[in-house]
Design a protein around this nucleic acid. Structure first.
Lengths: 343, 343
DNA sequence: ATCCCTCGTGTAATCGATTCCACGAGGAGG
DNA sequence: CCTCCTCGTGGAATCGATTACACGAGGGAT
């Protein structure tokens, strides 16, 4: 029952707790003989230091908090995975919180994380600026934004820039003859929500194409909203020729809606998505997507955060996204297999 | 910089730290006047108790550890989500560890979790019995297995029973005229790895069908292994007519391999998978799968674990899985749209 | 031979909470 | 009016580590 503590180790090794602590923390000034006896005792007793006590004393937990927007979104799980990996390599562990795209749930997790005295926080804010995040940032909690961010805060941001890729996408679509392009946007309160629309609109403008309000669907980055927005598009007197979903889950919803209508992609309507995921290769048809360097983002974010924690001064990082053209918008251009279902 | 502590609150409220603690923990015997002053001080100072100190003293963290086998697997993320949700409802928080199907990584996370003095552990073991898990179980760490388990341990198990569904699947396949059925198995060291093969073999036997060794692919529940196993099947002098992947990621790999060969599903070869996920509706073609009641499993697991922690005696839970027939094995039987790409 | 510095070590304070115990005030009962 | 019990409260020990400080022994320089 009583788990072994540093005292037990000290007793067995015939030294004081101070010496045991010094051995365990690789501090100076321990005789080889004592070190050896301590190590033997640790081993014999199966002693593991109590991290609670240690953290209480040292005021550091070697733990990072990561609040992601939605665990069910493959983009974020991949991000989470790379974050954990890099953190582990640097000697930190990660505690995750899943915001489920709900600001109040995000705040719940941030509060919990802060209560746990994490050393730093990685956030992909679900909203434009919860007071909690603002306060934490101003209170000096080491913090880095990843993917999404909150403007006006002196917090490093690690993200992908999709502008060029969106331009490429629009060029691709225009080249395929599409003129009526619609977008399912994310929440306007998120940077990725509004930026992707802006990038899309700008790219459209280069081709003299408009982006009427009716062609902007309001989504929340989750599948259900993608379905509803697509249904509205399809019910329009003049439906769009292309639907561009601002994330992969809304694209899934769009797929649902299009299928429910009995329509075919790309014959009846074309589809493209932000965020590439393995499944897009195998959907019917394969979905054209904008791929982010997700793993790199996660690693860069952790490095920025640990820099901050350890007193260095990290820079914001912006990595380019790229277009991966498949067949969901028409004639595809990749060098992949040439199969066509009606060949 | 100095974060506010209970002392500061006590000082501002003009009471002792003991009283503050009593107010915060809803203990008996605090005068209304004092309670009010304490609450006011807490509010004014924005005081948040230090959970580290509290846990050190009380020897409980109100935190559960969840070690999942693979975050990139949608089945496990859905499980993780429901686990977190239920835990939150019961006043616990969750710390996740991602084992990535690697026993040594699993052990790393379990050790970290134990070091953090979590109140209980939810595990889906990546192997048949790491010494660490065995020791923890015997040492009395409250523990519940979910999805997979380790035999011979007095640890409650919450899982789905796929035997009936596998039988339904084989009946479905047999009814469609398939006779040469292959399976991509998970690691034999996992219960789900070996059980699904056994269930498949038993069901086959009912129809007098054999399961030759060449038709058993050794996978590890990850996409790459599904691809490799499928390639081997396809290279056989007499390839199988159906490939049944024991999880969704290996099915994804199988899809990759089949596509790379330029083959068509179900025309050239049929495919089915264990674990249903939203993407299976939209793959080309939609994939027949065995669906687990994932959300229910997660919730039941958390309830079992909290029961254990709080001194009650939970039972193991086994929930049924069910077959969801789509078109990847031939003529499909659902009531969905009747689209065929070559109609 | 004396002094001083270094090295290894132990004692005790500390981190921020919870909680046992003791104590004083005030009300009820005799 | 005295006694006893209850209630509200504060002091101090405690959880398990880290670490500042003190101290004794031993070696080198003078």
């Amino acid at each position: 029952m009583a788990s072994v503590g540093i005292k037990d180790v000290a007793a067995r090794a015939g030294v004081s707790v101070a010496t045991v602590s010094r051995v365990l923390n690789a501090h100076a000034s321990v005789s080889p003989a004592a070190r050896e006896r301590v190590l033997a005792a640790v081993d014999a007793l199966g002693y593991r230091p109590n991290t609670l006590a240690r953290s209480l004393r040292t005021d550091q937990t070697r733990t990072l908090g990561l609040v992601i927007s939605d665990v069910l979104n493959p983009y974020f799980t991949e991000l989470a995975r790379s974050v954990e990996e890099e953190a582990r390599a640097l000697g930190y562990s990660i505690i995750f919180g899943n915001a489920d795209e709900r600001p109040e749930l995000q705040d719940h997790h941030i509060r919990t994380l802060l209560d746990r005295r994490i050393d730093g926080l990685l956030v992909s804010p679900a909203d434009g600026g919860s007071p909690l995040v603002l306060d934490a940032a101003r209170a000096g909690t080491p913090m880095v934004f990843v993917d999404r961010w909150i403007p006006g805060l002196d917090v490093p941001v690690v993200r992908a820039d999709g502008r060029a890729a969106v331009r490429d996408l629009v060029a691709h679509l225009h080249g395929l003859g599409h003129r009526r392009l619609a977008i399912i946007a994310g929440p306007a309160a998120t940077t990725t929500g509004s930026e992707r629309v802006a990038a899309f609109r700008d790219a459209l403008a280069e081709y003299g194409l408009p982006l009427p309000d009716a062609y902007i669907g309001q989504g929340d980055f989750q599948a259900g909203s993608g379905r509803r927005a697509t249904e509205r598009f399809l019910a329009l007197p003049e439906p769009p020729e292309v639907v561009f979903a601002a994330d992969n889950l809304m694209a899934l919803g769009a797929l649902d809606a299009i299928r429910a209508r009995g329509l075919r992609i790309p014959h009846d309507i074309a589809l493209a998505a932000f965020d590439d995921i393995p499944w897009f290769v195998h959907t019917d048809p394969p979905v054209t997507a904008i791929a982010q360097p997700t793993g790199e983002l996660g690693r860069a974010a952790v490095r920025a955060l640990t820099d901050l924690i350890e007193g260095r001064t990290p820079e914001s990082v912006t990595l380019p996204a790229r277009l991966v053209a498949r067949s969901s918008c028409g004639e595809h251009t990749t060098t992949g297999a040439t199969r066509r279902s009606d060949a």
